[in-house]
Design a protein around this nucleic acid. Sequence first.
RNA 1: GGCCCCUUCGUCUAGCCUGGUCUAGGACACCAGGUUUUCAUCCUGGUAACACGGGUUCAAAUCCCGUAGGGGUCACCA
Length: 576
Amino acid sequence: MCIFNQLKEFSRLGALGVLGGQFKSATRYNPCPMSPHDQPTRPVVTRFAPSPTGALHIGGARTALFSWAYARQHRHIPGSKFILRLEDTDLKRSNAESTRGIVRDLAWLGLNWDEGPDPKAADPYAQQLGNNGPYFQSQRAELTFKHNYEHYVQLLIDAGEAYEDNGAVRLKMGSHRGDITFDDAVYGRIEVKAADLEDFVIRKGDDGGRLPTFHFAVVCDDALMGVTHVIRGQEHLTNTSKHAALHDALAKVTGDPVTWARPVWVHTPSIMNPGGSKMSKRDKAKAAREAAKNAKIASADGIDATRFNAFMEGENNDSDIAMSIANQLAVSLPEIEVDDFRRSGYLPAALLNYIALLGWNNGDNIEKFDLDYLIQYFSLDRIGKSNSTFDRVKLKSFNGDAIRALSAEDFACELADYVKAYRQQDWGQSGVFNGDDWLAFCTGVQERTHTLPDPLDANAYLIADDDTITYDFSPKAVRKAIHGSEGEGIRLLEQLRAIFDTLPEENFGHAAHEAIAKAAEVFGGNMGKYAQPVRIAVSGGVVTPPLDVTLDLLGKSSTLTRIDRCLEQAKAQTGT
RNA sequence: GGCCCCUUCGUCUAGCCUGGUCUAGGACACCAGGUUUUCAUCCUGGUAACACGGGUUCAAAUCCCGUAGGGGUCACCA
C-alpha cells in the first residue's frame, strides 16, 4: 500500500479534525465548552431524510451537516443520535442507484449515521431492521406491526379525522381542525388560518401503490423513530401546518401524546444561484443542453436516443445525460451535487466549512473551522432566515486554504487519488513520477493549488515528451524574456546552457538553481532575468513551480534538450 | 393570483430581540503597495451596504405601519 495512503488513512482515523494549521479548532478557541444557548438534558434525535431520486444535492448536504452536527453536539446525552432514512414512497422516481450515491457522498463528507442503511451493503435495499424498523419507507409500508402506516390511516378514518376519496385517503382540515399555529426554531411562530387549509391526501390510491404520501410517512416515521428535531429546507415550511395537524390528530386517536408530540421544526433558508434561481440540477441540465445545441450533436455516449431527445426537449434533467454531453464536448457544468464538487477537486473539509457558513455563523468572526468546532458551537438560534447565494469563488478560496493546511504527505495522497479517479492516470509512485519526485512535485505545487486539478492542468509540460513542448513567443511576457533587450534572453540561455552542461545529473535542479543565482551575482541583474528564459525554455510558458523543483523533476537531459529546442526556434524567428 | 416567509458592502455575513458604544465590524472578490526567480502564498492599506416611504423617540440598521423587490407553497412529488 502506498505510504501516502497509509498516512492518509491514519489521519482520517484521527478524530474529525479534518483541518489543521491555520484552521481554528474548537479546543483552541474555547477552553470552556459551555455554550450560551440551551443545554438540553434530553436526548436529541435528528435525521436526514432524502428521497433517492437523484444524487445528493449541495443543499441536502447542508441539511445533513446541520442535523448531524446537532445530534453530535448532544451525544453525551444517552439516546442522542443521527438517523439516515430514505423517503422512497414515490415508486416511479426512486431508485437504488440514487441511494448508493447518497450513501457514498455522505460517507465522503464524513457525516456518519447511527441508524440507517449499512453503507457497506452491496444491495442498498436489503432490508435492515433497526430498533425502529427499516430505513426505507417503502419497506416500512410493507410491515404488519406497529410501524405500518395503514394502521394509523385506519385509526384516523375510524375517528372521523380522515376519509376516503377515490381510493385515496384525506385528512380533514379547515373548520374541522381550526387555525393551526406552530413554532419554528428559525422562523418563529407561524399561524395559518383554517380557511387556508385544505384536506390533503395522506395515503395514495391504487396508482400510487396505496403508499403513504410524503406528509404522512414523514410524520409517522419521525414520531415512531423518536425524532426530536426536524431540520430541513424551508420549502417545507408551508407544509408544516399539515404535519402539525397530523401529529395532533395522531396523538388524539392513539391516545399517545408523547410519541406523537410535535418535534422541534427547524427550517433552513435556501441556497441560490448567483442568478437568483434556486440551485438545482436543472442548472446543470440547462448548461449541457445549451452546449449540445451549439455543437449540434444528436446523441450522447451511453445514452439511448429516447432519453437523449427527451432531455433535449427539457422533459427531464437527468444528471447522467448532462454529464455524458459535457464529457463528450469537454465543457464544464456548474457544480450542483456533492459529487460534482468532488469531481472538480474540492476537499470535503472545505466544502463542509463553506456550506456551514451559508445560513449559519457563530457571530465570532471565525470563518475557518473544522467539524469539531461546528459540533461545539452549532446552534439553532444562529441559523439565518434569508436565502443565500452560493459563491464558487469563495468556496475556491476556502479550498485553497484547506489544501494548504494539509501536510505535504496528505496533499500528495489526495492528489494521487484524484488523478487516479478522474484522470485515469497514475502520476505518483509507480507512475509518471517515482516516489521522491512525486512528493517533490506536490510540495512544489501545493501552495498554488485551489482545486485538485489545477496543478495537473498547469504542469502538463512536466510529463510531456521533450519534443512536444511548443513555444509561442507572441505573448508579451514570453517575448520580453526571450527577445527583449535585443535578444538578451537568448544570449543568457546559451550561457546557462553551457553551464548546465557541466553540472551533475544528481540533484540537477538544485545545482542549476545555484548556478543561476551565481550568474545573477556575478553578471548583475536580478534572478528573474536569468530564471525566466529557462522557465520558458523548459515549460513553454512563464509559470512553473520554483525552478529548482521544476528542473529536478525534469532532469538534466530533458532540460538541455528543451533549451536547445527553444533556442533553435527563437533564433529561427529572429532570422525571419 | 391566495397564503407563508425574507430584505445590511458585488457575495457570505456581524450588529437587530434587550434603540445611543455603528463616523456599521469580519470574510471572499476587487484596487493599490510590499515580500518573492515566475505564478501563487504571505503582509499592509483602500473602495464598497443598513431596499424605499412614513411613524414612535431626545436618539432607529435596531421598534411600528405601508410600499417595492425576492423566495417558498398551493400534487394521489418529496
